[in-house]
């Protein structure tokens, strides 16, 4: 399939926590080996991140803890706002938005109807005070759906899709197992038929058989719905299985980018080499 325009086109994305100075970006990063600016003390969470995400593609974002993986996702999911750069998102109807510059109302609309987010910790992604069905309903209601029956049927369909038993639709997520909570999060994220899905360490902390089922589910969803995804992980197995292309972050910079197979077979950057070696 040939698509002419990417869903997401990120260029020079930068987020500095603190007042920042002219030398922040120059004095931090992979070469400097740090992400705290020695001149002004600001934390350069990410700097100069650039990549394209094509329709239906899964992009892996890999790196050690503190490398800026989650910061990238937060910026793109509009939970945090970037200090510089641009991130052009193309909606299904062809409209383009720079995620760095959108206003709050537009940000909310995009988050509610165009994006989906699955967190490592289900407590961040689910409302434990309401039932499983209520969690899915919330996303549909955000999108303006006001028919109870339609909401109910859509929720049941999504539970089927994510292999959560239908009978548990009215149970609280707190009564679910960890793997089921994660699947419910995916169901919730998929409710408004998003065009861009963010998966932040979704399998971390789950046992291997449950991990495998979640990864299978993600692949099936990608095949069926063709939704573009950004998968953040420190697990080489996850990117190998899911992601066609991968970027590797360290100290808030992209140190390596390319086809996942290529990166895993022939890592160029010393950090990536170490990462691949240590996994064996």
């Amino acid at each position: 399939m040939v698509h002419e325009t990417p869903v997401l086109s990120v260029a020079g994305l930068t987020r500095i926590h603190g007042r920042g100075c002219a030398d922040c970006v120059r004095l931090t990063g992979d070469a400097a080996g740090r992400n705290v600016c020695p001149s002004c003390g600001s934390v350069v969470a990410v700097a100069d991140i650039s990549f394209d995400l094509w329709p239906g593609e899964i992009l892996g974002v890999m790196g050690e803890s503190g490398s800026g993986k989650s910061s990238v996702v937060k910026l793109l999911h509009l939970d945090d706002r970037a200090s510089a750069g641009s991130a052009w998102f193309r909606e299904g109807d062809g409209r383009r938005h720079d995620l760095v510059a959108v206003d709050e109302a537009e940000a909310r609309r995009l988050r509610d109807t165009r994006f989906g987010m699955v967190f490592q910790n289900p407590h961040l992604g689910l409302n434990f005070g309401v039932s499983a069905g209520g969690n899915i309903a919330e996303r549909l209601l955000c999108g303006g759906e006001r028919r109870f029956q339609t909401i109910r049927e859509t929720a049941l369909g999504l539970l089927d899709r994510t292999e959560v038993p239908r009978a548990r639709i009215d149970h609280q997520p707190g009564q679910f197992s960890g793997g089921m909570q994660q699947r419910l999060q995916i169901a919730r994220a998929l409710a408004p038929k998003p065009e861009l899905l963010f998966l932040d360490e979704v399998t971390t902390g789950l046992d291997l058989s449950v991990q495998a089922r979640i990864l299978d589910l993600i692949l099936e969803i990608q095949r069926e719905l063709g939704v573009a995804m950004i998968v953040v992980t420190h697990d080489l197995g996850v990117v190998r299985l899911l992601a066609g292309r991968t970027i590797v972050l360290r100290h808030g910079r992209v140190v390596e980018a390319g086809l996942t197979d290529q990166i895993l077979e022939d890592p160029q950057h010393p950090y990536t080499q170490q990462l691949v070696m240590s996994a064996l």
């Binding site: 039932s131 309903a137 919330e138 209601l141």
Partner: peptide, 11 residues
């Protein structure tokens, strides 16, 4: 943003 009020109705 009144989605959570609607969720209360749903529940």
């Amino acid at each position: 943003d009144y989605a959570r009020l609607w969720v209360k109705l749903y529940e």
